[in-house]
Simulated assay, not measured.
Amino acid sequence: MRPLVRTAALNGYVELSRSLDVDPRTLMKRVGLDTADLAVQDRWISGPAAVRLLELSAATSHHDDFGLRMAELRRFSNLGPISLVVREEPDVRSALSLLLRHEHMYNELLHARLSEGNGLATIKVDLRLAESGPARQATELIVGAFTRILRGFLDARWQPLSVWFAHGAPADSARHRRMFGTGLEFDREFNGIVFYADDLDAPNAMADPQLRSYARQYFDAIAATPRDTSVADRVRELIEALLPTGRCSIEQVARSLGVDRRTVHRHLTHSGETFSSLLNATRARLAEQFVASPRRSLTEISDLLGFSSLSAFSRWFHQQFGCSPREWRKEKGQEQHPGLG
């Protein structure tokens, strides 16, 4: 399966696109994504599609610093659950080591490594793309994000000694120089950041020593099992995200994963599942939660579960639970308030 990235990697994309007079919905559709995908940070989408989206957005907006503009919108929390642990590490070295060692928890495309020598430290960045194609914007977004992370660890005024990019210089590098300082170079041997190795031993400015043990306990719990244990888990996540859009199909799921439907079918078969079985199970789980709560109308629930009409939802519900949604809601209400029955 092609690598995935968390939707948080596109944090601020909609707002930035609109500010540059670009329609984000149209561009996302062209690469097989949907703006609804961005509603929840912990969803996962196709990494190659996200890379293509950034390139397309730069070309359409006529701003070849689009990736850097995205980096300026990044927050530390965009890294996901691991951010809670990394920010409590005592020094920059341990924080960076943890972040790089567990990069699969927030971006499966990314391959970053830290090296030291002659008093210098270097973070080199690569993207694991199975297909050839430009990745300038994604690369600059990632290098910019790492620069902002280091400033969070050290000081908001911190500057790297140099920042290298393997691609050529843009027509206007003003934004790049504001972000990275005077040591900016293009057409170099790698993409990355060079700084004094002494900075690695500096205390982490974000850390609270009292919270570190709690953060470590939390991290040990979420890192004990790899996030990506099966394709079925990925498909379940996508089904739940796509249901409210009314476009939850195996074709759309396959596009989000960056493969064709036959590949999805083959992987699900190996795990003893089918797309229909996962769709039905996800709907059933959500229906139990939604119908039991009186805060949502049955029509709203029907829409959230991707049914074309309330009658279609009611027929499906009766087949699953042996009663109508109204009867289920009434029964659950009596269980919660037996004195009112």
Rank of each mutant, 00 (worst) to 15 (best):
E331K: 14
R236C: 11
R295T: 13
R227M: 08
T274V: 06
E288N: 06
V235C: 02
S311A: 13
G272A: 08
A215M: 04
T245L: 09
S230H: 10
L279D: 07
R315H: 13
Q217L: 13
A287T: 03
R329I: 01
I250V: 15
L243Q: 05
R285M: 06
A202V: 08
A221E: 12
A281I: 01
C248R: 08
F317E: 08
S256H: 15
S213L: 15
V231T: 14
D303G: 10
Q320V: 14
Q289K: 15
E237H: 10
S297V: 02
S302T: 09
A202H: 12
S311F: 03
S297M: 07
D220A: 11
N204T: 03
P294L: 05
D303T: 11
W316Y: 11
V235E: 00
C248I: 07
A207W: 01
G258K: 04
R255I: 00
L243E: 04
L200T: 07
C323R: 15
T282I: 06
R216I: 11
T269P: 00
T269I: 01
L305H: 02
E327T: 15
C248N: 12
R262Q: 09
Q289V: 15
D220I: 00
S293A: 13
R295C: 10
R326M: 09
R329T: 04
L279F: 10
L305P: 04
A215C: 07
S314F: 00
S324V: 10
N280S: 15
E288Y: 07
Q319C: 07
R329N: 04
A312I: 01
S297K: 11
N204L: 08
L304W: 10
T245M: 03
L298Q: 11
W328N: 05
R285E: 12
R296A: 11
G322Y: 06
A254L: 00
R247I: 01
A232R: 12
I239V: 15
S308D: 12
S271W: 02
T229R: 14
A284Y: 01
L238F: 01
R326A: 14
G322R: 06
I222E: 07
R236K: 14
H270N: 12
Q217F: 10
D260G: 11
R255A: 15
E331T: 12
R295L: 14
S308I: 00
L286F: 09
A281C: 05
D260Q: 03
F290R: 08
F307E: 01
T245E: 07
V253T: 13
W328C: 05
L243Y: 02
H265Q: 14
Q217S: 12
T245S: 13
S230Q: 06
Q210A: 14
T263Y: 08
L298H: 05
R236Q: 12
V231C: 07
F275W: 11
A254D: 02
L257Q: 10
C248Q: 05
E240A: 15
R262H: 09
P244A: 08
T269C: 02
G306Y: 09
L305C: 04
F219E: 11
F321L: 02
P209M: 06
Y214R: 12
T225V: 15
V235L: 06
A241Q: 08
F307S: 00
S308C: 01
T299N: 08
T263G: 04
A205D: 01
V264D: 00
D233Q: 13
T225G: 03
